[in-house]
Amino acid sequence: MDWSDIGKMVGKAAPIVGTLLGGPAGGAVGGLVSQALGAGNDPDEVGEILKSDPAAYERIKRLEQEHERELKAMMLEAETAKLGHVNKTMRAEAASNDGYVRRWRPTFGYLAAISWALQSVAIAWSFVWAPEQAGQVSQAIAALTPMWGFALAVLGISVHKRSQDKQVAAGQQPNGGLIQALTTRLQGGKQTSGKG
């Protein structure tokens, strides 16, 4: 058992503590939980207390209420560090001299288009040459809908971000997107400054 397991156990009673136990601050928050329960700084020992003593959840809930401000600050720090890491990775990708690293988004687009075309041909072929299987093929298509929904959403975001990357590389301000275009059109074509 580790601190993330403890986080799942206490998540309903103390959601902030549960979330922090599952993240990079798990050890530090685990120490606070251990102290509140009178246990050693060991997730196994804390887990045993939680299983045997229903009042332990109330003590953790009280801990969360008493230290809510500090726990929320820890959560904000953890999220900031996570976003900083993601941004660092994105900057490394943009600055990379490796052609494939820079071209992963177009590659994903090409592969999605090829997969979509092959699947469409296979579906059409199965309806023509094996019409008795049409019901099963239709069920398979419905089962693939969430996968394609996710893949096409990723592709849409990738295309949008690639367009923004090109605009920034050309020294232009990226377009505001659909909402900005609608706002501009509704205001009679006047550009909004974005200042409130």
Rank of each mutant, 00 (worst) to 15 (best):
M1E: 05
S4F: 00
D5Q: 12
D5I: 03
I6S: 01
K8W: 04
K8F: 07
M9L: 15
G11D: 15
G11H: 04
A13P: 13
A14T: 00
V17A: 01
V17Y: 02
L21D: 04
G23Q: 07
G23T: 00
A25P: 05
G26S: 05
S34G: 15
Q35K: 11
L37I: 01
N41P: 08
D42Q: 02
E45S: 12
V46K: 04
E48F: 06
I49H: 02
K51N: 06
A55S: 14
I60A: 12
K61H: 13
E64K: 00
Q65V: 05
H67D: 07
E68S: 09
R69D: 15
E70M: 09
K72M: 15
T80R: 13
A81P: 01
L83Y: 08
H85P: 01
H85K: 10
M90Y: 13
R91V: 05
A95C: 07
S96A: 15
N97K: 09
D98S: 06
G99S: 11
R102F: 08
R105D: 11
G109L: 00
L111M: 07
A112T: 01
A112P: 03
S115T: 13
W116F: 12
W116Y: 14
W116H: 09
V121D: 14
A124S: 06
W125E: 08
W125D: 10
W125P: 07
V128G: 08
W129P: 05
W129S: 12
A130H: 10
E132N: 04
Q133E: 14
Q136P: 09
A140K: 02
A142R: 08
L144N: 01
L144H: 00
P146G: 10
M147A: 10
L152N: 00
L152F: 02
G156F: 13
I157V: 13
S158I: 01
V159N: 03
H160A: 14
K161R: 13
K161G: 08
S163Y: 12
S163R: 06
A170C: 07
N175Q: 09
N175T: 10
G176T: 01
I179H: 02
Q180D: 14
L182Q: 03
T183W: 12
R185A: 15
G189A: 08
K190R: 11
T192K: 11
G194C: 09
K195A: 14
